[in-house]
């Protein structure tokens, strides 16, 4: 997925002289073509995230559109104040391409996990927050970002993730994509949980339960109309995120349901990571399973809410 995103940045830069690439000591050979063909717009800096965010802001103030790439946790927590003050307060078109969001770096342990990135980015005024579900969607997203106003956060997944997005659905930041029409229950996913939601929906279909899937690739601004339209008539909504339950997708969806539908809202179950630093490490899949985010567990959560009395969820 990262390659799809960086290839798209290269393509954009070939035709738009405003685009620059900024990295923070990335792996050797990263973006070689970009570096060779457009060296004056390629900045591979040291391990200094605070400084490169400020520098990217300065470039943006000069009229450039910087795409900044490094590991998600370092691009969010390490330089949060620079992101807030330099990028968001000045509302600059800097694009943060965050590699390995969620529990992608599970083998490396908790220092490398970015399980609150979406929440803390979402809390900043002017910031747009996205998480594409697969490589083709990452490409569509990046290709649509040049003239997006203000700063943008893009959470990039591990790579090699199942391709579930479709060309014919197109892509627009802030517009959710309904991948499967719901009947009884609606899954709302973001990033790679979308493919888990689809697999869960398949399992439920075999049991005669009609589950829909909404790809909420943009957490902010949240597509409220798309959510409410997809939720029409369903008994329950299940949000699924590879992220803490504090302030991410589940919080955002719950807020909309409460504010817009009040007591008439469908039951809501939020699946995600509880308020802990994950103690386990190993594979991304193992950690996802530990937190109940794999297809069978998602399907089970849906069955539980559907078999409980109305209003008894959560």
């Amino acid at each position: 997925m990262r390659k799809a995103a960086t290839d798209a940045i290269y393509e954009l830069a070939k035709t738009d002289p405003r685009i620059v690439f900024v990295g923070s000591d990335l792996g050797a050979g990263t973006m070689d073509k970009f570096r060779k063909e457009m060296p004056e717009r390629f900045f591979m800096e040291g391990v200094s995230e605070q400084n490169i965010i400020g520098m990217a802001a300065g470039l943006a103030m000069d009229g450039f559109i910087p795409y900044v790439n490094t590991i998600a946790t370092f691009l969010t927590r390490r330089c949060y104040e620079q992101v807030a003050v330099d990028l968001c307060l000045h509302n600059l078109p800097v694009r943060l391409i965050a590699t390995g969001g969620g529990v992608v770096y599970a083998p490396l342990g908790p220092t490398h996990l970015a399980i609150e990135d979406l929440a803390i980015m979402r809390a900043l005024p002017n910031m747009t927050v996205t998480a594409p579900t697969d490589a083709p969607e990452a490409r569509r997203l990046v290709m649509s970002t040049v003239d997006l106003p203000g700063p943008l956060y893009v959470r990039i997944a591990k790579g090699g993730d199942p391709v579930v997005s479709r060309d014919e659905d197109g892509f627009q930041v802030g517009k959710a994509i309904l991948l499967r029409q719901p009947k009884d229950v609606l899954f709302v996913g973001i990033g790679v949980t979308v493919n888990r939601c689809l697999a869960a929906a398949d399992q439920l279909a075999a049991q005669g339960i009609g589950a829909g899937v909404l790809n909420m690739h943009t957490l902010k601004p949240l597509d409220e109309a798309g959510l409410l339209s997809a939720a029409k008539g369903v008994r329950a909504i299940v949000t699924v995120e590879e992220h803490t339950l504090m302030g991410g997708l589940g919080s955002a969806v719950g807020d909309v349901l409460l504010r817009r539908l009040g007591r008439t809202a469908p039951d809501l179950i939020t699946l995600g990571i509880p308020d802990v630093f994950p103690e386990k490490y190993g594979s991304q899949d193992a950690l996802m399973k530990h937190f109940g985010l794999q297809p069978t567990q998602i399907a089970e959560a849906a069955v539980r809410v559907l078999s409980a009395p109305v209003g008894a969820a959560a």
Binding site: V20, N51, M55, A56, A57, G58, D62, Q82, V85, H90
Partner: peptide, 25 residues
């Protein structure tokens, strides 16, 4: 005023970007 400041340690990074931008252009 080019940039809001007040939290210390931001301005020189901003100026680096501005100077690099001018040089690049």
């Amino acid at each position: 005023v080019e940039a809001s400041t007040g939290s210390l340690g931001h301005g020189l990074s901003l100026a680096c970007g501005m100077a690099l931008g001018a040089r690049s252009a």
